[in-house]
Design a protein around this nucleic acid. Structure first.
Length: 507
RNA sequence: GUCUUGUUAGCUCAGCUGGUAGAGCACGUCACUUUUAAUGAUGUGGCCGAUGGUUCGAAUCCAUCACAGGACACCA
């Protein structure tokens, strides 16, 4: 990176002039005495003071210059720190002799980070401002900021240079603040419930806990490959075996799959496991969790999401088969007959493989006709056994599992079930998965004998749940791309053609 | 993966059926001591994403590639 751009050259020159005059353009000592938000709050009484000012008060604030309005012998600038924006009045005669004309006017500009000392007053237009008596450069910005009114709108720039997005777009800052709050509230919610936060390996000898393609990396010292985890599930269950009765982990999972508006190669989820509980208890704690989030985020329970309106007061619960009929409008007489389902799906342009099991076909019906219609939060329960390899069978109906998925705005937000704790059954299910893998399904689960051995010591009956945090944040912030809730979403590298040819030349 | 729309100054965008590259903001110079996207005057700034092709002539037409956005299919 060469600073060859003319605008950058100009600004480097300005920094140099300041430096030569004894004003360090990257000053290390600063005297900030308050944030902008506090300044505005503390001085909200200036309205009542004589001349709407109080020269006895003195504050020192700092921030980035966002607006610069120069009017001859005086200027208005607006500076912004994390807490807010403040207008500063800078007049020649209030600064040290010559500083305004020789330095401030010429070498301070939008983008620079400055420190300003002075007293509070209210302008003729009625804005609480700061009357500067000292101005100091803290950091000279040598790249110009994007346009002050439109900011950056180019999605590519916003994702690749998130810092610019954060400088220019208040909404972006707000979204990531909410994201941080959601993670923090989630942690507190489960801690308050007596859950223990744990950290399990991110590098797995056998990728497990989900059906997905893993990233592979290599451990040099051991001379073996490791897999970035696709889910923490099997390690968290080992902890239930070990006697912890309520554990959770909030962290990243990695899946070597496609990217789109709802998928990033690394994403954040919470998984929690709860001994002596079942999936019914999970439904209750999920509702409670949402109430907790909404209360602490001060969100209204009816939230807009794009063109939709989601009522977070209305959680409903419906078994999968019933939803096919009442929501999907699938004729009730066909939903337990493989042949009829295949015909029904094919006739509506949903091709299915002939060898699918009844449970798989019911799942296809659900995906085709029900999922997108689930706008208000809906727990779909009683999933077919065939599509729930890690879930415990229902005692009342052996064809279905004690499982639910939570759908909001037509998207899956959470997956949960009473856990399978019969080691022999689990062994058989892994074996079936291995057969699928040998048959070419590269997302099928691998045999994990170490996990089977753990189960063989006895895992207390328990229920476990995963919630996709990125998608949850999308719902709460009305964002429609996962990239808008990830600070640094995965992007393809930009190939620098000059560099490529340089490297070629070396070879 | 498929389809589709983009890529022009630091940023936001014009540029019609091919004929020497435009605006606003920013920046430079000048004026202005209460402005609110300050204002007025004036000036600098571009290999029009890359590579080929068609043409006397390409930002514009065609092809390929790269990156991005959107939609659809699969996975959280």
């Amino acid at each position: 990176m060469a600073f060859e751009n003319k605008l950058i050259q100009q600004r480097i020159e300005k920094a140099k002039i300041l430096k030569d005059a004894g004003y360090n353009p990257y000053a290390n000592d600063n005297a900030r005495s308050t944030t902008i938000k506090k300044y505005l709050y503390v001085n909200s009484d200036i309205e009542e003071k004589e001349n709407k000012r109080d020269e006895k008060r003195h504050y020192c604030v700092s921030g980035r210059i966002k607006f610069f309005r120069m009017m001859g012998k005086a200027s208005f600038i607006k500076i912004e720190d994390e807490s807010g924006m403040l207008q500063i009045y800078v007049a020649r005669d209030n600064l040290a002799e010559g500083f305004y004309n020789d330095f401030f006017k010429k070498h301070f500009e939008v983008g620079d980070i400055v420190e300003v000392g002075g007293f509070p007053f209210i302008t003729g237009q009625g804005e609480l401002s700061l009357h500067a008596t000292e101005v100091k450069m803290l950091t000279k910005a040598i790249s110009p900021l994007p346009e002050k009114f439109h900011g950056v709108t180019d999605k590519e720039i916003r994702y690749r240079k998130r810092y610019l997005d954060l400088i220019m777009n208040n909404d972006a800052r707000k979204t990531f603040t909410i994201r941080s709050r959601v993670i923090s509230l989630t942690r507190h919610f489960f801690e308050n419930k007596g859950f223990l936060e744990v950290e399990t390996p991110m590098m797995h000898p056998i990728p497990g806990g989900a059906n997905a393609k893993p990233f592979v990396t290599h451990h040099n010292a051991l001379g073996i490959d490791r897999y970035l985890r696709i889910a923490p599930e099997l390690y968290l269950k080992r902890l239930i075996v070990g006697g912890f009765e309520a554990v959770f982990e909030i962290n990243r999972n990695f899946r070597n799959e496609g990217m789109d508006a709802t998928h990033n190669p690394e994403f954040t989820s919470i998984e929690f496991y709860w001994a002596y509980k079942n999936y019914k208890d999970l439904i209750e704690i999920t509702k409670e969790y949402f109430r907790y989030l909404f209360e602490h985020l001060s969100l209204p329970t009816i939230l807009p999401y794009g063109d939709l309106e989601i009522n977070f007061d209305k959680f409903s619960e419906i078994p999968l088969l019933e939803s096919l009929v009442t929501i999907g409008e699938v004729p009730p007489e066909i939903i337990k007959d493989k042949k009829s389902i295949v015909e029904y799906l094919s006739a509506r342009n949903f091709p299915v493989k002939a060898e699918m099991t009844l449970g798989q076909l019911q799942g296809e019906l659900f995906d085709a006709f029900v999922e997108k219609k689930l706008i208000n939060p809906t727990f779909i329960t009683e999933y077919p056994v065939e599509i729930s390899p890690l879930a415990r069978r229902s005692d009342k109906n052996l064809d279905v599992t004690e499982r639910f998925e939570l759908f909001i705005a037509g998207r899956e937000i959470s997956n949960a079930f009473s856990e399978l704790n019969d080691p022999v059954d689990q062994y058989e299910r892994f074996k079936a998965q291995v057969e699928n893998k040998d048959a070419g399904d590269d997302e099928a689960h691998e045999m994990d004998e170490d996990f089977i051995e753990a189960l063989s010591y006895g895992m207390a009956p328990c229920a476990g749940q995963g919630i996709g945090m990125d998608r949850l944040v999308m719902l709460l912030t009305n964002e429609h791309s996962i990239r808008d809730v990830l600070l640094f979403p995965a992007m393809k590298p930009i190939i620098n053609e000059e560099k490529v040819s340089d490297e070629d030349a070396l070879i």
